[in-house]
Structures are given as C-alpha cells and as structure tokens.
Design a protein around this nucleic acid. Structure first.
Lengths: 131, 131
DNA sequence: AGACAATCAATGCGTGTGCATGTAATGTCC
DNA sequence: GGACATTACATGCACACGCATTGATTGTCT
C-alpha cells in the first residue's frame, strides 16, 4: 500500500515533467520547422509504417494519444501543408488512407533532429523506468 | 549512451501515460465536481499552504506547470465560482493574494476523493521511479 | 429487398492554453 | 525629481483540443 502523499507526489512530478518537455518540444518544433507536437508525432508514425497499407485514420488513432477529431484535424493541417496525402479506401469507402509525401518525409527527417535533441536534454538517463 | 529508439519509446510512453490519466482525471473532476484539472491543482496548492501568506499568484505559478496567463485565468474562474478570494497586497500593490474560501475548501475536500481514486487506478504500484 | 444498428471520418461548438501586449506599481540611476 | 528599466498581473488573440453530432457507408436481421 502506498501513502496518498506519495501518490500525489508521483502525479505532480509526472505533471511537471510532461508539461516541461511538451512545452519545450512544441516550441522548438514550431520555431524550427513550423510543426505542432501532434503534427510531428503523426508524421513520425506515418514515416515508420511507410510500407503498411492499412486503413490509416483508424490505425493512427489507436496507439496515439489524440482523440479522433483532433487527429482528423491534424491530418487536415498536414495535408494543407502538403506533407501528407489523403486517399479513399476502395474496399471500405468510409475509411481514409493517409500517406506521407516526399515533402513530408523531408520535413520529418529535419524535425527529427530537433525532436531527438530536446528529448535527450530532458529525458537524460535518469528515470529509465522498466516495462 | 542510450539508443534513439529507446529514448523515443520512453517519450511515447510518457505521452500516452500522461494523456490517459489527465483525460480521465479532467473528465471525472468535471463531471463530479465541475472542476478543471488545473482548477483542482490550484485549489490543492492553496489548501496546502493555507496558513502561509506570501504573494500568492507568483508563488503559485512557480512549482506549477501553468503559464502565468493560464494561472491568472484559472484563479479568475475559481473566484467567479466563489471558491477563492483575491485580495490586494499592501506592501506591493502590484501583487495579489489568493486565499481559498470555505466553499473552496469544501469543494476541494470532496474532489480530493475523486482525484485520489483516479490516481490510484492509473498510477498503480508500477513505475515507482526513484527520486 | 427493407429497416435498423454500427462504424468511419468530418465538423460545429465551447473552452483552456500560450504568446504577446497592456496597465499599473516599484526600483534604479542621473 | 524625472526618465527608464523591471516586475506583477490582466487581457486580446489565435489555436489545438474534446465532446457531441452529422453524413456517408457498411453490416445484420427478418
């Protein structure tokens, strides 16, 4: 059994930790590459699963922290910026494929450096919590 | 030296973890007590430092994850709801004291149960990262 | 086939946030 | 004392978010 105080302590630490990093990251990505954190994360997922051709919006949503509507808008923004491309899914015309474009891939590669730098700064070796 | 993949893994885990809990918490507090997570955290800080009489806004801001403007508005909302009281600081008339009211203290006590319950659910004994 | 539930994505709406700025009070330097 | 930087908090603004709903498509059951 853990004391309430300890639990609250852990929570506050998580709160502070997350917000500090997220804020820094968001700002750095925005300034250097014109990308939101959510936009980068989305791009990052798409770059990974480049060859896979499943029904994207759905699959992207699961495993990400964004709500369905937030993801929809994020993809819309990325598409408007030409970093991503939407296509109908033939087998199920409700679904939408999302594919990263060449421009998107380039932007992702650039931004990835910034991303890693910020992460390395904040997520130093400390707190490598198991599993 | 830690691999980039591991770093990204840790980050994504933090991202998911935080958002899951924050979302649940926000929703629970809102439904049961009409409080935002930020509002609760603010109230929580004020309830703790009940006797201390320093220049509040300032002191609250430090040690919390909110920006100065966000805190200002959060306190404004709390005051409008009668849970908190603003008072001028005599020694430095730029400063503002924030004090929790009786109603605020009651609301906080109620909400604290919900808060602890959610925390206990998500922050089970796992991941009790040191220091 | 026809009616009804279920699923996928988009959108209207309200809200909380950060950034930049505004307003007021204080400190500093000549 | 007067000019200027600094500090404390509030506010205008734009924006990303979640929730609820809509619109379109597919699945199911009789």
């Amino acid at each position: 059994m853990e004391s309430e105080a300890a639990l609250v302590g852990r929570w506050r630490k998580l709160l502070t930790c997350y917000n500090t990093i997220a804020c820094d990251l968001d700002r750095a990505l925005q300034d250097a590459h014109g990308l939101t954190m959510s936009e980068f994360e989305t791009l990052d997922r798409l770059a990974e699963a480049a060859n896979c051709d499943k029904r994207r919006m759905q699959d992207l949503a699961s495993g990400m922290y964004l709500s369905q509507s937030a993801l929809s808008r994020t993809v819309a923004r990325l598409e408007k910026a030409g970093l991503v491309h939407r296509a109908l899914c033939e087998s199920d015309r409700r679904g939408v494929f999302v594919k990263i474009t060449e421009a998107g891939r380039r932007r992702h590669t650039e931004a990835r450096e910034t991303h890693m730098a910020i992460l390395a700064t904040h997520l130093a070796e400390a707190d490598a919590s198991p599993a």
